Computed example of a mutant assay.
Amino acid sequence: MNGAGGRPGRDDAPDRLYTLTGGRSRAGADSPFDLVTLVVAECDPVPGMQSEHAAILRMTERPTAVVEIAAELRLPVGITKILLTDLLDAGRVSARHPRQEALPDPEILEQVLVGLRNL
């Protein structure tokens, strides 16, 4: 059997996760990260950096959602948020939510819905 749950490359043993996060179980109440937060690297990985931190910096050369990072790392989202908080606190990544302007205006959606109902 390979790792937890029998999935190749996956090792979610509690002691490994404890080591990755330095014993922390939450990113903190003021964490800016949710599933759709876009993360962008502000620098390249440096020698001696924790391998997960380096992997995050490599995969976030372009804006990448937290959920995508967690999936790529094969780590729980909560653990990924802790790692991202470490990088954010060190100024190695920036975080932003997808633009609200990119979403259609609710009034326009309502008008479209009314128009469709009238057909």
Rank of each mutant, 00 (worst) to 15 (best):
V36F: 15
V36M: 14
L87F: 01
G91P: 02
A65Y: 02
T19M: 14
R58T: 15
R16M: 04
Y18G: 06
N118S: 11
R10H: 14
D105R: 09
L17H: 07
C43Y: 01
E107H: 15
A29H: 09
A102D: 15
D34T: 11
D86K: 02
L75F: 05
A41T: 08
V93R: 01
G28Q: 13
V40Y: 00
R10T: 15
A70D: 03
L35V: 10
K81L: 11
L103C: 07
R62V: 15
P98Y: 01
D11C: 13
V39W: 01
L84G: 03
L73E: 09
A55Y: 04
L103S: 10
L109E: 12
D86N: 05
A90I: 05
M59D: 10
V114N: 09
D86T: 12
M49H: 02
D15G: 04
L103V: 14
V40N: 05
L84K: 05
P47K: 06
P8V: 15
L119H: 10
N118V: 06
M59E: 12
A65L: 02
T37F: 00
P45V: 01
A95H: 03
Q50M: 14
G5I: 07
A27M: 07
P104L: 10
G48E: 00
V36A: 13
R96Y: 01
G78N: 12
E42I: 05
L73S: 09
P14N: 01
D89A: 10
M49W: 03
T80F: 04
Q50E: 13
S25R: 10
L84V: 09
A4H: 08
Q111Y: 13
G48Q: 00
P14A: 07
